[in-house]
Write a protein that binds this DNA or RNA. Structure first.
Lengths: 247, 247
DNA sequence: GCATTTAACTTGTATATACAAGTGACGCAA
DNA sequence: TTGCGTCACTTGTATATACAAGTTAAATGC
């Protein structure tokens, strides 16, 4: 009804943000260009400095602008250096697309730490390390082979779990918050054991995702997730300079 | 020297943020737990509500907290749904590690749009599409094969460029800002032509990164970047709940 | 007992004000 | 000409205040 209400529908600080973003997108404000000072924006939008400051500060945190105390505010350079890949719980992903998920626990033992585990898990050489191999199946089709090594200091009761009911991911994240993760993606040829587990033809490649997660200051787990290359791919989309949006 | 100065060294709003983050990390504030209200934090830190509000609002934008107007503030759930992969310009990457970079322009022509190009590039069937194949070489070793299709509406002069001197990425990003990108990663077996270009052994898999970028509202380019799987991997690290940090 | 109203508490936005701190240019003095 | 100090302008932080709007639970009336 009222024009006044419609005009002020988005909050003022948001309207200021939108305006500046629009000017950057349209090219009116090019990369490195100087953005009007807070004083100028106050006059232009008839806003208080705190409101203008909030708008500009948030755009700065979101990567649109760079601010230099005393000098001014400038349009930030492009990034596009990083790619956001969606790597979700395999179980959620299957269930979401209406599939039937099933886990098969192929192995669950303690092994003696080999040199590469000393490096990756930061455990002493020869000390026990928990090891599991779980196959995730979607509608009867093998979709992911989870070859995992777990730091016993982090999950002392790992061997007592039943991973045909619960995924290792769900169990481990319940023990403590994940502080950091490292991922490595490569294309490999599966060995005979991987090939038979994933039911692959000879000569078919695998997509390998190696993930290490940290919790409580130590490496909690190192897992190698193998997918049939011909049936699986990671897809990620990213809006350039999208907001650091709260989900 | 002065204790008072040292105590107030980080700004108050930052000290409040750090305190709340520390409580979440330590587990004192578990997932879903209620965070003290702004009024309570005002008393605890002897701060004004605006200062407390800024601290909590920023933590919310960074994904640590979720706020519900009228109800309260709560610790957000874990994400770890996305992985940040560093995908940088191959040329920068090689030069940075001290390597010698070289480009070989294997192909640069116009082709007629096939159905998959109609889908991926959103061009009319049969219309011309620019096509290039460029091999990136590091110290004499093939490291990336860039098989690219370009929307002529976006880069009309694409065929006039010399891509042994300049990478297509650098040329295209100079034409207009990238608005969005889509990536797809898979493991594939190279065909004979890919294999000979990358100097691969028979049976060696490839890591394939397909990237589409948008600019000016249309799909600017679609490129397939092939890497020898045995010598190449993407590595990404991510601090869980890291700040939406301005770079 | 049940539905409705009310009150208390919460977050969301906006203003006016104040002082601190960094930058850059101009002007003055040696 | 050179060096230094000053001053205007910029962003950074913090407070006190105000009202709007959403949630929840207690109080009220039937």
């Amino acid at each position: 009804m009222s024009e006044a209400i419609a005009k002020t529908d988005p909050p003022l600080y948001q309207r200021i943000k939108d305006h500046i973003k629009q000017e950057i997108r349209s090219g009116a404000l090019a990369e490195g260009a100087r953005v009007p000072s807070e004083t100028a924006l106050m006059a232009a939008f008839e806003a208080s400095r705190m409101t203008v400051n909030r708008a500009v500060r948030e755009l700065s945190a979101e990567g649109w602008l760079e601010r230099v105390q005393g000098a001014g505010t400038f349009v930030a350079g492009q990034k596009l250096h990083s790619v956001l890949l969606e790597v979700r719980s395999i179980r959620d992903e299957i269930l979401e697309r209406g599939g039937r998920h099933e886990s098969r626990q192929l192995e669950l033992t303690a092994v003696s730490a080999e040199p590469w585990m000393v490096r990756d898990l930061e455990v002493p050489l020869g000390e026990p390390v928990f090891h599991s191999v779980i196959l995730h199946v979607e509608n009867g089709q093998p979709i992911q082979l989870d070859i995992r090594h777990v730091n016993p200091s982090f999950a002392p009761a790992y061997l007592d779990q039943d991973f045909s009911q619960q995924t290792p991911y769900d169990y481990l994240t319940g023990l403590g918050p994940i502080e950091a993760a490292e991922h490595q993606i490569e294309a490999i040829m599966p060995d005979a054991r991987m090939r038979s587990a994933l039911n692959l033809d000879r000569g078919e490649p695998c997509l390998s995702l190696i993930r290490r997660t940290w919790s409580g200051g130590l490496v909690a787990t190192r897992s190698r997730l193998l997918h049939p290359g011909s049936h699986f791919s990671f897809i990620g989309r990213q809006d350039y300079r999208s907001a650091a949006a709260p989900r």
